[in-house]
Simulated assay, not measured.
Amino acid sequence: MLDEDDRKLLRYWQAEPTLSQGELAERAGMTTGRATRRITRMQELGVVKGVGVVIDWGALGYAVEVSLRVTLDKTQGNAFDVFLKEAREVPEVIEVQTFLGRVDVRLSIIARDMAHYQQIYRSRILTLPHISEIEALMHVARIKTSEGLPL
């Protein structure tokens, strides 16, 4: 689906998302028009979903991150759908992942401090439907984070 020129554009764009299409084209060794057509095609194909901003939550005063492993009561036919719909509504939930296995869902939660986390946990998390078990993992350090691909 992608050729080497597409990969080249993506490599440079991943490394520096603020580059203009002209700058990308120059680095990739092609004209701006050609680069723009390729980028537009990759966006239309869904290869590039968007360009965003990465926020440092710690710089905004969120010092606590907790990962919750949630097992749902699957005796209810719609447990997943209802739980996921309501979990998405909790503003401090920054990530939701589903799994096959003993753990059904993982929620990543940010909070200003432990008191704030406890308030979120008691008032928002424990009120989510169909929870049968929760295991909390306190985030200590993020060693590697990457959404980029080795192109």
Rank of each mutant, 00 (worst) to 15 (best):
residue 79 A to S: 15
residue 70 V to C: 02
residue 34 R to E: 14
residue 60 L to F: 13
residue 73 D to M: 00
residue 94 I to P: 05
residue 110 I to K: 14
residue 11 R to M: 08
residue 65 E to G: 07
residue 115 A to Q: 11
residue 4 E to D: 11
residue 63 A to G: 06
residue 14 Q to A: 07
residue 85 K to T: 08
residue 72 L to F: 08
residue 23 E to G: 02
residue 127 T to E: 07
residue 136 A to S: 15
residue 9 L to G: 13
residue 27 R to S: 02
residue 107 L to T: 05
residue 78 N to V: 05
residue 22 G to W: 00
residue 77 G to N: 02
residue 18 T to A: 07
residue 42 M to Y: 09
residue 128 L to Q: 03
residue 106 R to C: 02
residue 59 A to H: 06
residue 36 T to H: 12
residue 78 N to W: 07
residue 73 D to F: 00
residue 43 Q to P: 00
residue 18 T to F: 03
residue 107 L to I: 04
residue 47 V to K: 02
residue 124 R to W: 01
residue 78 N to C: 01
residue 139 H to G: 14
residue 124 R to P: 00
residue 98 T to H: 02
residue 37 R to P: 03
residue 118 Q to R: 15
residue 138 M to Y: 14
residue 59 A to T: 11
residue 139 H to I: 01
residue 71 T to D: 13
residue 18 T to D: 10
residue 90 V to F: 02
residue 6 D to R: 01
residue 100 L to W: 05
residue 115 A to Y: 06
residue 128 L to S: 05
residue 27 R to E: 14
residue 121 Y to L: 11
residue 24 L to Y: 09
residue 96 V to N: 11
residue 125 I to K: 07
residue 62 Y to G: 14
residue 103 V to G: 05
residue 117 Y to F: 15
residue 48 V to C: 04
residue 91 P to N: 02
residue 8 K to W: 10
residue 21 Q to K: 14
residue 55 I to A: 05
residue 11 R to P: 02
residue 88 R to W: 04
residue 22 G to I: 01
residue 48 V to L: 04
residue 118 Q to W: 12
residue 92 E to H: 14
residue 63 A to F: 08
residue 130 H to A: 04
residue 60 L to W: 12
residue 119 Q to C: 07
residue 113 D to Q: 02
residue 17 P to T: 04
residue 148 G to F: 03
residue 74 K to R: 14
residue 72 L to C: 08
residue 10 L to Y: 08
residue 36 T to A: 12
residue 68 L to A: 06
residue 108 S to R: 12
residue 47 V to T: 14
residue 98 T to P: 03
residue 3 D to N: 15
residue 26 E to Y: 07
residue 129 P to V: 00
residue 45 L to K: 12
residue 144 K to D: 13
residue 130 H to E: 10
residue 14 Q to I: 03
residue 132 S to Q: 14
residue 138 M to H: 10
residue 135 E to C: 00
residue 124 R to Q: 15
residue 27 R to Y: 10
residue 103 V to R: 14
residue 137 L to H: 07
residue 52 G to C: 05
residue 112 R to Q: 13
residue 36 T to G: 08
residue 114 M to A: 05
residue 141 A to Y: 12
residue 24 L to F: 08
residue 98 T to C: 04
residue 116 H to C: 01
residue 74 K to M: 12
residue 97 Q to L: 10
residue 56 D to F: 06
residue 146 S to M: 04
residue 128 L to N: 09
residue 112 R to M: 11
residue 12 Y to P: 01
residue 15 A to Y: 10
residue 107 L to V: 07
residue 54 V to G: 10
residue 86 E to L: 01
residue 61 G to H: 11
residue 122 R to F: 13
residue 50 G to A: 00
residue 54 V to L: 14
residue 88 R to G: 04
residue 82 V to Q: 11
residue 26 E to F: 05
residue 82 V to R: 13
residue 59 A to M: 13
residue 68 L to I: 02
residue 65 E to P: 01
residue 148 G to K: 06
residue 72 L to N: 09
residue 50 G to P: 09
residue 92 E to M: 04
residue 14 Q to D: 14
residue 17 P to F: 09
residue 129 P to D: 04
residue 29 G to V: 02
residue 2 L to P: 06
residue 26 E to H: 05
residue 117 Y to I: 00
residue 40 T to C: 01
residue 91 P to E: 13
residue 43 Q to T: 09
residue 23 E to I: 00
